[in-house]
Amino acid sequence: MNSGERVTFGKFLMLLPMLILLAMFFTSVVTLFSNAFVERGGFSFKYFQQIIDRPDYHVVFYRTVLSSILVAILAVLFSYPIALLLWRANTWRNMLLIVVLVPWLVSLVVRTYGWIIILGPKGFINAFLGWLGVIETPLKLMFNDIGIIIGLTHVLVPFAVISILSSLLSIEENLEEASRVLGASSLETFRRVVFPLSLPGVFTALMVLYLGSVGAIVTPLLLGGITEKFVGTQIHSEVMSSFNMSKAAAWSLCLLALSFVSLVIIKLIERRALRGQE
């Protein structure tokens, strides 16, 4: 719409609720800071010092970041063939899209619960392998990193499918045809035309997946148990069990800073990868 239509105060009121909501969001971020640095009325760096000093906390951060990188990459690998399938399936796309959307939108508690039933000591896999006689004692698939990674990957794949599919759908159809007409094989066409043009979707997926993974609480808590701590589960226990809001806020800020740095790194990689496009 054209700019410059007269704005009266009455009309500005239309924007006000949104501004209030956004202000609340940013206030909550500020509150995070004030909680993290203030202890008994004074400025304190205590919990940040604690994170720097304690090796067991370093492990938690390492685990969270490394698992999240792995989860993001695995989820993209799993989702790419699904996205391709949906892209090609013109007539069935809507039906198949529901198969992606339902797992995406169903609560992650329920999806994680499903994994408990599958991976648990008396779960589906162990029961099945036991029945086959392959194993005698149940495999430990849960309450460790494997469980967390399987669960998080599964929870995050649907979003990656949607992101990559969006990119694929925005490729002009005749581009691909043009490549074929020019004599490129279908593999060549994929490598040189389709894949590069789907990269924006891949990188969006990587970013959102990584964020979703580092900030996760429910899945690591249920599948990792109390010993294999994630940053999110540590934060959760500080708030819910120790009632230590300052410590939770300090951890949150570290997580936030970490996510921000990671986002910048992914953005830089993306810019390198997409150089020459546009």
Binding site: L32, L211, G215, I217, G232, I235, S252, S259
Partner: peptide, 9 residues
């Protein structure tokens, strides 16, 4: 914003 941070905030 990671959800854990969002929760604490």
């Amino acid at each position: 914003f990671p959800h854990a941070c969002m929760g604490v905030a």
